[in-house]
């Protein structure tokens, strides 16, 4: 029931993705489809395979088997750079920031503006661009030249999201972006997601905060033990239905495998 055929309107289609770590079957033939400009909530209990599936999509985990179709073209990623070149950006649960590098440096890590024929960092431009982009995203961080280790959890998350958003991705994957945030900062992130998707960027949102999902998502995909268990319309699904799918209470037949 949750196997997809690729169509022209889809940004990405993942089919029968499998990944095994020793004795652990992290992914047992998972499928996922995301349309252009669509916000998809990816939910499931711990160890359901959400993060692994997203790491496959972001190129940091190479699957054992399976097919990924991006913008109608079959692709495979050996490194994160391969995925990034297609416009897939991921913000990781464990905050992929370097604590000892300043805000602007983290925003541009791996693709710093350069001068002198690429030999030197263009530090001045880096700080100017960082300021402009933080302001554009309504992120309140007054100084771009202090190490991110000195920022609050919310500010660090904002920097991590800003890093992904500001390079114009086609698909943005957010892994638990609101887990460590204060209430006001959650609102900012949810607004950010709406803004981004309205510009045609597809968003996959992994979160345990189910109330967030109904506010921003178009579809809710539920994973269970390494497979996609259900694909629900966020506008018509109730919270109770979603929870029962996540804990897999009803009819284990059919939906599994």
């Amino acid at each position: 029931m949750t196997d997809y055929e690729a169509t022209g309107a889809d940004r990405v289609v993942m089919r029968d993705i499998r990944k095994r770590y020793g004795m652990v079957d992290a992914l047992r033939g998972a499928n996922l489809r995301v349309g252009a400009g669509e916000v998809v909530g990816l939910v499931g209990d711990n160890a359901a395979g959400k993060s692994t599936l997203m790491k496959v999509l972001a190129g940091t985990v190479v699957p054992d088997s399976g097919q990924i179709v991006f913008d109608g073209r079959q692709v495979s990623f050996a490194t994160p750079r391969d995925a990034r070149e297609l416009g897939i950006e991921m913000v990781y649960q464990d905050l992929a920031l370097c604590d000892d590098i300043d805000v602007a440096g983290n925003l541009f890590l791996g693709r710093e503006p350069r001068r002198a024929g690429g030999l030197l960092l263009d530090i001045k431009r880096m700080h100017e661009d960082a300021r402009r982009q933080l302001d554009a995203l309504n992120i309140r961080i007054p100084l771009t030249d202090i190490p991110v280790g000195g920022l609050s959890g919310g500010q660090r998350q904002a920097v991590a999201i800003a890093r992904a958003v500001t390079f114009g991705p086609k698909l943005l994957i957010l892994d638990e972006p609101t887990a460590a945030l204060a209430v006001a900062e959650v609102e900012t992130v949810l607004e950010l997601i709406k803004t981004v998707s309205s510009q045609g960027v597809s968003v996959i949102l992994i979160t345990h905060r189910l109330q967030d999902l109904f506010r921003v998502c178009d579809r809710l995909c539920v994973m269970y033990e390494g497979t996609l268990r259900a694909d629900l319309d966020a506008r018509t699904t109730s919270l109770e239905r979603l929870v029962s799918e996540i804990v897999a209470h009803d009819q284990p037949e059919g939906a599994r495998s």
Binding site: P80, R84, A96, D100, I101, L109, R111, L119, L121
Partner: peptide, 21 residues
Amino acid sequence: TPFGRYVVGLGSNGESLRRTG
């Protein structure tokens, strides 16, 4: 230089740096 930046990044959070490509 970018190299110096990556040296610090590698010691600070190597996995983060690797994920940026």
